[in-house]
Design a protein around this nucleic acid. Structure first.
Length: 813
DNA sequence: GTTAAGTCCATACC
DNA sequence: ACAGGTATGGACTTAAC
């Protein structure tokens, strides 16, 4: 039978001792299809130089005799082939070893420690990645498929899967078809005790296209048409699996569902002795323990969008936390419903009604977030060529690496191995290298400023100077680039290596799609341009990351060194041209126009660009009307990474100030930003000073709302691991005492209250937001308001303490 | 008991 | 453990008196 097919999920299975891959996807009619394909996996044995043909034949013979495996299972080598390949850019002779069951590739490779063998590689690749590379059957790409229907007990009864049809793959070729409308089903649970395994699931909400349900075993007399009440938790759980099956989603979507909803459901299913049959083979979710739990459901893709947002998206979000509420507010302009969890112990009829709609809203937000970021997931999947399950969970370093792995064939390259435990330890012990240059600013209010910055600076340095593991030379060779790292000199070949080449592709694609997007605003090109930008930015960090296959600290250190060299050179040229440089951080430089006009400055930028090496490019960031720099708190020296700018159209750009820090109270943050705005708009401090005086008065009169005085600090590790007990740790302890579960990652809220007796430490005055008490006036004046404002006024030679001492109403200072 | 230096910790910038 | 280094600054801890 012939049909069009789009792969969504891949799973390997063994049948009669051989590897098979089942691909779950859709056909062009929207039917769910399972495609089964055989797969013969292989790895590489790289030979030492100068072996005779006869010797190589001998080795191949010896390899073909090997049988190895783990436990009961044993695989034989099916065949070997000799190839000319490259490894880290060097030409090598390599034997391709085909193993009956790829799970035994490592064991087989272990048997090939002959003295003629230089290295063994690719036995550590994931079988699905290997399959996608070898067979070129890429996720989310349409194919024309010929296959034969599988029925009965073929392949161990695979025809029993909950799909519309199962085929064995016979022929496949690319199709022109593009459009794909994925089916999402979002879910969310509510429980009575937060800790997994300790409580009951009170309700489960589901949200899809024209589909909304809240399943529960609790009742409210007020009717909600989407609520279905079951006799107990067990029946609710059964119905949950059934609804998921009926809706037949491609993606079952949750928010933090790897860490909470799915494991919680599993725990209560176990307790109720019911099976959570979510898989297309009616199997239960399987959890793998990495750093965090990961829940996999056979045949449909469980997506925890929190993880994708955290790993990929978060750096471009303004939200102060990655909670569903904050992220949905920012991306969708929609919030969670309010529900007071303290009611849980004594729920009334109306409360259940509210709780059901609260639960449904969470699924709705999750569904809409998935719709919102789907194109980003889709583009990442297309670019790195890994299945959506992995793409939505992997960190940026993995995305970079996956792109490399899936593109090595173009370079005839064999993949490097993943570092093992000892190697990682060694790498981590190597210590830091010198990073970026930051210009020491002079505090002051400046006027008429220009700012240039390099586009993808580190990426373009790597490409322009060819910095990577395969171009790195231990000893200097003829024509090499030499980079002086002070402690040592390192060398890189000028022969173009694959890593800089691929990174060049990221930068080029980013440029191309950014341009395309600007000409024709289309969410697809935006997502694509964004994905390439993220990959380009992460590639530098990747080479310095201890877990990377293509780790090269020398390349990372050289990238930073050459970036410094380039920014210094640009700073010098700008100065020489007659501008005053006032600031620079890593890849940007700010300077005073000193009477020169913008047009002239842009002309100068063009000249600067013509002198830059390789693909490096300097851009106009913007022209600004005013800029404010302040001193550090402890010395007179200007503070780095802390400044505020106002553009000619009145837009503010504030960096580093307390205003942008989430661990300062609202009052201090708002006051500081008002002061900064006033100063930048007016060009003087007069109005700003009045704003400050007003707030100080309010504090003293106790007119400030508690909400504006709450300080929020993240708990980064379990309470017991803290060596220094800061205020937020005490607040977290208090929460635990009240029976509120706290875990690493939570934002802890507290305020500083007046206490009986003289308390010295801040932590002794910590109270939780709902705890009775009066705020401590002195703390908020001295530890929040003053530090956030005094070095701003210092720029105008105003000593806040003196000014305020002269004010009769404010004698506290 | 007080104070200054040192350390821990969170958060930001690029 | 899940990209890197640079930087600020609050609050606690420790050493010295």
């Amino acid at each position: 039978m012939k049909f069009e097919f789009i792969p969504i999920d891949y799973e390997a299975f063994d049948f009669n001792g051989k590897n098979y891959i089942k691909i779950i996807g859709r056909n062009d009619k929207g039917k769910r299809i399972c495609l089964v394909d055989s797969y013969l996996g292989s790895f590489w044995v790289i030979l030492k130089e100068g072996l005779t043909d006869k010797k190589i034949k001998d080795i191949q013979g010896k390899i073909e005799e090997i049988r190895a495996g783990k436990g009961e299972r044993e695989s034989k080598v099916v065949k070997t082939e000799l190839h000319d390949r490259k490894f880290l850019g060097k030409e090598v002779k390599a034997i391709k070893v085909f193993v009956e069951n790829f799970k035994d590739a490592h064991s087989v490779a272990d048997e090939i420690g002959f003295k003629e063998v230089e290295k063994r590689r690719e036995y550590d690749l994931n079988i699905i990645s290997k399959y996608i590379i070898d067979k070129k059957i890429l996720p989310l790409k349409w194919y024309e498929v010929e296959g034969s229907l599988i029925s009965g007990n073929d392949f161990g009864g695979i025809a029993n899967l909950e799909v519309d049809a199962c085929f064995e793959l016979e022929r496949i070729k690319e199709s022109e078809r593009k459009e794909f409308e994925p089916r999402f089903l979002a879910f969310d649970i509510e429980v009575d005790k937060f800790e997994i395994g300790k409580g009951d699931v009170l309700m489960i909400s589901l949200y899809g296209k024209n589909f909304k349900k809240v399943l529960t075993w609790k009742k409210s007399s007020k009717k909600q048409d989407y609520v279905e009440v079951f006799k107990d938790e067990e029946e609710m759980l059964r119905k949950f699996s059934e609804y998921v099956y009926e809706y037949a989603p491609d993606f079952l979507v949750g928010y933090f569902s790897d860490g909470f909803d799915l494991p919680y459901l599993r725990a209560v299913a176990e307790k109720n002795k019911v099976k959570l049959e979510l898989g297309l083979d009616r199997s239960q979710p399987k959890f793998s323990r990495g750093n965090v739990l990961t829940g996999r459901i056979s045949g449909l893709v469980h997506v925890d969008i929190f993880r994708f947002i955290r790993n990929v998206f978060s750096q471009y979000l303004q939200s102060e936390t990655l909670s569903l509420n904050d992220v949905a507010s920012e991306l969708l302009g929609e919030k969670k419903h309010d529900f007071d969890f303290l009611k849980l112990g004594k729920m009334k009829d109306d409360d259940w009604y509210d709780f059901f709609s609260y639960n449904l809203q969470d699924s709705k937000l999750t569904y809409e977030l998935m719709e919102k970021i789907w194109l980003d997931i889709y583009e990442f999947t297309k670019i790195v060529q890994e299945p959506v399950f992995e793409v939505t969970r992997n960190a940026m370093s993995s995305h970079v690496e996956d792109y490399i792995i899936h593109n090595l064939e173009r370079f005839n390259e064999i993949a490097e191995k993943r570092p093992v435990h000892e190697e990682i330890g060694k790498r981590r012990g190597r210590g830091k290298y010198e990073g970026a240059f930051v210009f020491q600013p002079t505090p002051g209010l400046y006027e008429d400023i220009g700012m240039f910055d390099f586009t993808s600076m580190y990426g373009s340095v790597i490409v322009s100077y060819n910095l990577s593991l395969s171009s790195f030379h231990e000893k200097k060779e003829k024509g090499d680039l030499e980079v002086d790292l002070v402690k040592q000199k390192v060398h890189f070949s000028k022969e173009k290596a694959f890593f800089p080449t691929m990174l060049g592709e990221f930068i080029e694609m980013r440029k191309k799609y950014k341009k395309e997007y600007n000409e024709n605003k289309n969410p697809m090109t935006k997502a694509r341009s964004n994905a390439y930008k993220l990959l380009a930015n992460a590639a530098y960090g990747y080479q310095g990351f201890f877990g990377a296959r293509y780790y090269c600290l020398e390349a990372a250190a050289s990238t930073a060194a050459l970036a410094r060299e380039n920014i210094h050179s640009v700073i010098d040229k700008i100065k020489k041209q007659g501008y005053t440089v006032i600031y620079s951080d890593t890849d940007s430089v700010a300077f005073l126009l000193d009477g020169k006009n913008q047009k002239e400055t842009l002309g100068f930028l063009k000249k600067l660009n013509s002198e830059l090496p390789g693909i490096m490019e300097l851009d106009l960031e913007d022209f600004y009307k005013r800029a404010l720099f302040v001193s550090k708190r402890t010395t007179d020296a200007g503070a780095k990474k802390k400044y505020a700018l106002i553009s000619y159209d009145g837009k503010l750009k504030i960096r580093g100030f307390e205003t942008v820090r989430r661990d300062w109270c609202k009052l201090a943050r708002r006051l500081q930003s008002e002061i900064i705005e006033s100063i930048l708009k007016n060009g003087n401090e007069k109005d700003a000073l009045e704003i400050l005086k007003d707030v100080i008065m309010k504090i003293k009169k106790r007119e400030v709302k508690r909400e504006d005085l709450i300080i929020r600090t993240q708990l980064k590790k379990p309470i017991s691991e803290y060596l220094a007990t800061g205020p937020h740790v005490i607040a977290a302890k208090k929460m635990e005492e009240k029976g509120i579960a706290v875990s690493p990652g939570d934002l802890i809220e507290f305020y500083v209250a007046e206490m009986k007796g003289k308390k010295k430490l801040v932590r002794e005055k910590v109270k939780l937001p709902d705890e009775e008490g009066d705020y401590e006036i002195e703390y908020y004046l001295n530890n929040q308001i003053l530090p956030a404002t005094e070095n701003i006024f210092e720029v105008f030679k105003i000593n806040l303490r003196e000014v305020i001492d002269g004010n009769k109403q404010t004698k506290l200072f």
